[in-house]
Design a protein around this nucleic acid. Structure first.
Lengths: 244, 244
DNA sequence: TTGCTCCTCACGTCACGTGAGGTGGC
DNA sequence: TTGCTCCTCACGTCACGTGAGGTGGC
């Protein structure tokens, strides 16, 4: 306690309390993001209560993945856009990573049997993988037949229904409605009915479609009718409603 | 075409063909990963067929996210461990990102109504979020009651069943069995039955459990009984089996 | 001779980690 | 006086991007 009654913290204490390293605090000081309001006669950093508050704000934004360079500006103004753009960027990154995981785990499946794997084996496996489409020729034939059955109009209605369901799910997400909610489960039934109609009730075709949505991203697999976050929520909702 | 009949490629051509930048090729040369077998009298890089083959191998591994420093060593030996460790690392990264997405989208839900968001609003929202547990107090009470009902032995049996199902799913994944396969759908029914028993058939508790698995990672939410990749596969399998 | 491609430095990126070498404060 | 904490440089990270300034080859 000092004479003026305001407590000061040293870097070590702050590092301990915030879970940051001392170097990180030095870094924040260097770039002017969080500077101690005072220095001791020996040059030691002394942080005041206001500094500590600011530090916690910075850490909160940093933990959301926002670059330090953007945080300084954000702290002053409206955070909405920053958080939103962060979400969009994260969505893309997750999409890419999930596609990468899909490729890697498929690779592992192909490589699994062999004890030793050379680069040539790997390249062969990757070639097989790239050739392997989500649908078998027979499944594609049946899909096309189904497509011809309903005609262009029917296909258009399917797509419209996809888009409509997607918008409905997005509303559920934004309003924070959980997947177990009856209104959501009603949406899930619509989805399931649509998928059954599109696939002609063939579960293996359904599995291939879902694999494609996971592997390529929902947007690419549904002609932009369904977005990845909607699809992730839908999967959870389907899981919750299973066997009902 | 040269006298000895072997074609040579210049950096620009290779860059065009491989989708890399010229600078990337320079970089590969600098670190000794892919060096042109020849230089023209003026110092221009000339790549032979063997160099091009090596380049494509390098790109294949690079696209799997393997660091350039590891690729040099990997090309000579067994690729199995490298790919496997890559998968494990990716799994962790995706887990973290999904938890981050969960937090961000929850935040968006909380912030959604307001037109302008200050740092204080954000910190309040984050505090609410951190306090918000996956289970409501009432759900926790019911879970505990259910727990007491079956006793420690019953709980142990649940966990054993979880572990057993998880191992079964892992076998499906490694053997490349699709989610629509009857054997997999049999596993899915076991899973569903177990979850119904654990939750006492309450879908909102089930939703909370699934949210926790998505939000914290399957390992953390299931006491290491279920791994994230197994859970992702299971979700797809549940989606495929929905309404059966 | 004119474009176009190619070359070699060499600094910048992002958020710190990791020493080196030295001083402050109980 | 002895530990412990603190300080300031300053280089390294990873896979290139981005100029600057200059030459090769059709």
């Amino acid at each position: 306690m000092r004479k003026d009654g305001e407590r000061r913290w040293k870097v070590g204490e702050l590092a301990q309390a915030s879970g940051l390293t001392v170097r990180a605090l030095h870094h924040f000081d260097e770039i002017g993001l969080v500077r101690p309001c005072e220095r001791s006669s020996g040059g030691h950093r002394l942080y005041g209560a206001a500094d500590v508050r600011r530090l916690y704000q910075v850490v909160a934004l940093r933990d959301l993945g926002i670059p330090l360079a953007d945080i300084a500006a954000s702290l002053a103004g409206d955070l909405g856009p920053v958080v939103r753009s962060q979400v969009a960027q994260l969505e893309r990154a997750i999409g890419e990573q999930q596609r990468l995981r899909y490729r890697l785990s498929t690779l592992l499946g192909v490589l699994g049997e062999e004890s030793e794997t050379s680069t040539d084996d790997l390249l062969d496996a990757m070639e097989i993988m790239m050739k392997a489409r989500y649908f078998t020729p027979e499944q594609l034939r049946r899909l096309k037949a189904r497509h011809a059955e309903v005609g262009a109009d029917g296909f258009g209605r399917w797509r419209a229904e996809w888009t409509s369901i997607s918008a409905e799910v997005r509303r559920h997400i934004t309003h924070g409605v959980g997947p177990a909610d009856p209104t959501v489960q009603e949406t899930v039934r619509r989805w399931s009915a649509l998928m059954t109609e599109m696939t002609g009730g063939d579960r293996s075709i359904l599995a291939a479609m879902y694999a494609k949505m996971d592997g390529q991203g929902a947007e690419a697999a549904t002609l932009d009718a369904v977005q990845t976050d909607v699809w992730e929520y839908m999967k959870r909702a389907l899981a919750v409603g299973y066997g009902q």
